[in-house]
Design a protein around this nucleic acid. Structure first.
Lengths: 242, 242
DNA sequence: TTCATAGGAATTATATGATAATTAAACTAT
DNA sequence: ATAGTTTAATTATCATATAATTCCTATGAA
């Protein structure tokens, strides 16, 4: 009898538990349970279990058919751009590959977001970026959470792009970076160099200079990427650490 | 009594119908119906309606609470990076803004995808790109569907990135471009210039040259963007045509 | 009046049991 | 062997009942 995680309600708890199990590959070597089995496992009614299964279906994680039962879809069907799916992947254990792929993806999205921000940001967007930067300065002085202020800056830039597809990535970036904080849990302060790099992005956006905004953002992400690649084990076997 | 669309089953039909209605803004000026009302509207059981609602919840379109009922979430909660949500938005009527935002997003993702492909593509990925290019050549000669071959080329490049977050965008690109075909329905052939532009991407990827691959992809998307911006009405009022 | 508290009502959440539809697998007849 | 038929497993749908949540209202006290 699997104990479902606490949550808003029973359905969501089961979604969380199953989603995480699927992401962790628990059902790679055994079939996904049928409805009736899930009911006993979670001591829940069929309604609740079916609703949970449907939510996972909506995110591409599972499929189902009469007589055939319910099964875990191939990874290529999973919606990696869904914050829940992403968080389940992260919780299932650290993976250098996943982290690197995500930074590569950020290298695509965030520089362009900054460029768009330089062209499209509204006054309120600029104000939010300015505030985020001030928070980073306060953090540099040791008087605020340095990693959270870092995250908030990136979110503010994404917001300022005023592009709904790009803004959507806020949740993904937040999910991953928040996870990274928990993982490292290092109380590193904001480095002066780092602050200057972020200042450069903000300046470019304030100046309405897309090219400079793009380049400045790219620089930060290149740095992040090479940092994690340095730490990555050489052997492709141990690329995932649970 | 709303007639639900045909589909795999009743639940999915209701998801389609409601998803599209929400995207079309049908509930902007009236409250979203409560469970019981939806049951009568679709002449379906509560189980089915609730499962449909849960699937829409999983995509960020709606929320629900006891006594408070069910409501349409603000657009910022919608998962724009979900292919169903995107297709519902498209079906709800052409919007220059949405199209432009999507091309801007492609400008972020696809050049980087090409760059990654130049570095990470496996032999089978390269073969797929080669085949896609050949199909475009056949289309240029008028012996294959030109727009479909164009789409397939872009999908092959995304695939070749070998980055799961970027590969996910295949479904989005496919959804939008397929929709664009239906919309324009123009039997335009593959222009020689266009073919050469795609050839340039493939060459760069084959040569393992990320910088050139990125630039060549960007060129095509810049072209697409300026093309649609030319056609866009100047007044921000008529930015959406139903 | 104003505030807190309790009660009532609306709606979703959960449980249970029954029937229908789908389809893979087993069976049968040729 | 092969085509067609039956059977059985599982999800899909329906119906109904009860519980939990929370907004709203009524009540009463300061």
């Amino acid at each position: 009898m699997t104990r479902a995680k606490k949550g808003r309600n029973l359905t969501h708890s089961i979604v969380e538990t199953l989603g995480q199990s699927i992401a962790a590959g628990v059902y790679n070597d055994k079939p996904f349970p049928i409805e009736a089995k899930l009911c006993t496992q979670f001591s829940a009614s069929r309604s609740v279990v079916r609703e949970a299964v449907k939510m996972l279906t909506a995110k591409g994680l599972i499929g189902s058919r009469p007589r055939q039962g319910t099964w875990v879809q191939g990874e290529r069907h999973w919606n990696f751009l869904d914050k829940d799916v992403l968080s389940w992947l992260l919780k299932s254990g650290f993976s250098y590959d996943l982290m690197i792929e995500f930074i590569e993806y950020r290298k695509a999205v965030e520089p362009e977001a900054a460029a768009l921000a330089a062209r499209n940001a509204r006054p309120s967007d600029l104000e939010a970026i300015r505030v985020a930067l001030v928070h980073m300065q306060i953090a540099e002085a040791g008087k605020a959470d340095p990693l959270q202020s870092d995250i908030n800056f990136h979110l503010a830039v994404l917001d300022a792009s005023n592009n709904r597809f790009i803004i959507q990535n806020k949740e993904l970036v937040q999910t991953v970076l928040q996870y990274a904080i928990k993982l490292t849990n290092k109380t590193k302060g904001v480095q002066t160099a780092e602050l200057e790099a972020h200042q450069a992005i903000a300046d470019a956006i304030f100046a309405g200079d897309p090219v400079r905004a793009r380049a400045a953002t790219l620089a930060i992400l290149e740095e992040a990427l090479s940092l994690i690649q340095e730490h990555r084990p050489k052997t492709s076997f141990s690329s995932a650490i649970s």
